[in-house]
């Protein structure tokens, strides 16, 4: 690693101030960023550790809305249970030691095309709360490793509307355990949302045809007759574009069948 300074603000205001340092970079749990730095793929002047920002920790429920602080670890979300499908998703990210460090804000800010949280946020129509504004999930994800976040902007919380039923199905890439294809299905009073991770060169996306079919009839059989185009699907040694496209439908069906 190239060397850098480490700042440890205790408040959001101090974190924002620290991020004004030239080439500063926010540090969540570091489970992606530190390996990236080891490979010298980034050379920030300063890492602003968000672990000590108390306002960004923890989970609070208000009616059917769940607010998760940006610095909340996967392990904390996994143990929460207010939004069962989300907790189940968090309990299968990485491994136990990774879940004790990695954070929801870090995952969403990185927007890895095979990460799990982006599928949950998009399928839930979550709101990404930052140091300067609130961003709807539909506007937040802008492509592989690309988001609506501006320079110096930090995710302080994520607000999830709790659905009537939901489920996440992940077909794991057997070596990395990341999602080869992951599908999050969430059923709300005003319709069903389906978000797919791991599959597309554009990163997480909504499968709108399935949403329409499932909103009319929330059953795996409603997907019969639908197909997913292999255009722009990721193709690598783990699976072809056609294979991933096929898996999207299979995993969506499984998620619907398992939704509770």
């Amino acid at each position: 690693m190239y060397n850098f300074d480490v700042e440890k603000p205790g408040t959001v205001a101090d974190a924002v101030a620290a991020m004004r340092t030239e080439d500063a970079q926010a540090l969540g749990g570091g489970q992606t960023l530190i390996p990236t730095l080891k490979q010298r793929l980034a050379s920030p002047s300063t890492l602003v550790s968000l672990k000590g920002v108390a306002e960004m920790q923890g989970i609070t429920r208000d009616g059917d809305s769940l607010r998760i602080g940006g610095a909340t670890t996967h392990a904390t979300v996994a143990a929460d249970g207010n939004y069962a499908a989300l907790s189940a998703l968090a309990s299968h990210i990485g491994d136990p030691a990774v879940r004790n460090r990695g954070t929801i804000g870090g995952s969403l800010a990185n927007n890895d095309p095979a990460a799990c949280y982006p599928a949950a946020a998009l399928a839930s129509g979550a709101t990404i709360v930052t140091t300067s504004r609130e961003i709807a999930a539909d506007d937040y994800f802008q492509g592989m490793f690309d988001t609506a976040l501006e320079e110096g902007e930090i995710i302080t919380a994520v607000n999830f509307p709790i659905p009537q039923a939901a489920n996440y199905q992940k077909f794991v890439q057997p070596a990395s355990r990341f999602a080869l294809v992951g599908v999050f299905v969430a059923k709300y009073a005003d319709g069903v949302r389906v978000a797919v991770t791991g599959a597309s060169n554009e990163g997480v996306f909504r499968w709108t045809e399935a949403e329409a079919a499932l909103s009319a009839n929330f059953a795996a059989s409603a997907l019969e007759g639908l197909s997913v185009s292999a255009d722009n699907m990721i193709a690598d040694l783990h699976g072809s574009a056609t294979y991933r496209a096929h898996l999207v439908k299979v995993m969506t069906g499984r998620a619907v069948a398992a939704a509770s």
């Binding site: 480490v6 570091g30 530190i34 890492l47 550790s49 672990k51 136990p96 030691a97 004790n100 460090r101």
Partner: peptide
């Protein structure tokens, strides 16, 4: 809690 000490900064 268990953490991977190769992926955490000493400063943290």
């Amino acid at each position: 809690v268990a953490v991977k000490s190769c992926t955490m900064l000493a400063a943290e």
